[in-house]
Write a protein that binds this DNA or RNA. Structure first.
Length: 150
DNA sequence: CTTCTTACA
DNA sequence: TGTAAGGA
């Protein structure tokens, strides 16, 4: 297995963020890259964490929320009680995300309606412009005849 | 040239 | 988070 590592700049480029952002996450305790002297070396696991953090960020989660979700991946305590508690937390998070998902779908549906109305309106305007053009053409030919007669 | 820390906006 | 400074 290739024990790949990444430099901060590699990850920054891959995820479209600045190195400052990644260091900032470390400052917040979201990632713990190992060091090679002063240089930070990120493991594939670190990379995944950053990916999850950015994903959470995209859907409006705070860094803190993302950490909570990420922490659910590795149960630090394996006794029944704590595992059952984790299951509840997971179910709770799942419910919230599903609600968010539904809200987004409803909003998208709303956008579909708005867009349809806009396009319909534009189509009608197109017809108006067309008839206007014809009207203009007709008037022009009339004016032409009048001019010739005079 | 890249990365790091620190500090301020 | 961006940016700037100053060192490695």
């Amino acid at each position: 297995m290739p024990n790949t590592t990444y430099t901060i700049s590699q990850l920054a480029e891959e995820f479209g963020v600045t190195t400052r952002t990644i260091r900032f996450y470390e400052e917040k305790g979201l990632v713990h890259p190992r060091r090679e002297g002063q240089k930070r070396l990120y493991s594939p696991a670190d990379r995944v964490r950053i990916k999850l953090i950015l994903r959470g960020k995209r859907i409006g989660m705070s860094l803190e929320e993302s950490v909570e979700v990420i922490d659910m991946y590795d149960p630090e305590h394996n006794n029944r009680e704590q595992l059952q508690s984790l299951v509840c937390t997971v179910e709770d998070k799942r419910a919230r995300l599903l609600q968010q998902k539904k809200d987004i779908e409803d909003m998208l549906a709303g956008l579909d309606e708005v867009q349809a109305l806009c396009e319909q309106n534009l189509a009608e305007q197109g017809l108006v412009e067309k008839s206007l053009a014809e009207k203009s053409r007709a008037e022009k030919s009339v004016a032409e005849r009048v001019r010739k007669q005079s």
